[in-house]
Design a protein around this nucleic acid. Structure first.
Lengths: 146, 146
DNA sequence: ACCGATGTAACCATTATAGTTACACCTAAT
DNA sequence: ATTAGGTGTAACTATAATGGTTACATCGGT
């Protein structure tokens, strides 16, 4: 009997793309960016934006004016990379993209060796991905808008 | 008031590392690899292994002998890459590692452009990561075991 | 026919996500 | 000083993926 249940991997959260959208908005419309304005462009709830703004603030990317509202960039768009944004909103355990199963059987030749050997490869794969993100700045991204 | 709630990104499933572990076992111990044996080395429930074996089978990487049990590789360890394994077990929507928020406001200059511009960058980042995985074979990985 | 193995359904606890309401607080403008 | 609009954050929700588990049908060599 064949039934097929498609398993979907949990992908990298939309927090990342929403954060990039948010920073692009602030760069393009430096005067108007309240949470509600951003939420209107992203098309989501303002609280979702405020949460992400909190992360961007903590990462030193934006400044949010308390009370009156509105946000501004703390770095030039030429100096903000996609990696900066990715790191700001993707708080992973020890910054690891890949999980590795714990407690393999150390009495087994493979179980005893797999973790360290695989860890090294996966870190490299993660690293090249992040370095590619680091090559694109907010400025370059906005430059592609039509 | 400052409270800090750490948000952990859902990382790439341990299915991947368990699959690599499983294939390594079959390569090293071609005679003994029943689901229970593998589960004993991975240190998990046999059903978890059987599920992953099903994915590896569907990907054409292994053959499982029905009835009597035991698994064997369908390709040489020198010709199985980490990318093959990754693709076999990580069934993501359209193979996309990154999610992008849907339905941005197309009446906004940024909302109208962000998806396409960002998509291109993220695909490239995913691609370099996958190409790095493709550079490591099962054989090379096992060669690092001590 | 038996025995050990596989295939898979079904269920569960845990956790991340993303949306939502609610409300305290802050600042400028009146 | 009061008000209006915006921010910060807690709390709750529905949805979904994960990984473990039990149960059971089926397969195939001995």
């Amino acid at each position: 009997m064949v039934t097929s249940v498609v398993i979907h991997l949990k992908q990298i959260s939309t927090r990342f793309s929403i954060a990039v959208h948010t920073l692009s908005l602030i760069a393009v419309y430096p005067k108007d960016c309240t949470g509600d304005f951003i939420a209107g462009s992203v098309n989501t709830n303002p609280v979702v934006i405020r949460r992400i703004m909190g992360m961007l603030k903590k990462a030193g990317l934006v400044d949010v004016r308390p009370g009156v509202g509105g946000a501004s960039l703390l770095k030039d768009p030429e100096r903000i990379t996609l990696l900066d944004v990715y790191r700001a909103v993707n708080v992973t355990e020890e910054d690891r993209l890949f999980r590795i199963h714990g407690n393999p059987n150390i009495h087994c030749f493979v179980g005893r060796n797999i973790e360290q050997a695989l860890q090294k490869e996966l870190k490299e794969a993660q690293s090249v991905m992040e370095q590619r993100l680091a090559q694109t700045t907010l400025d370059q991204l906005i430059g592609k808008f039509k």
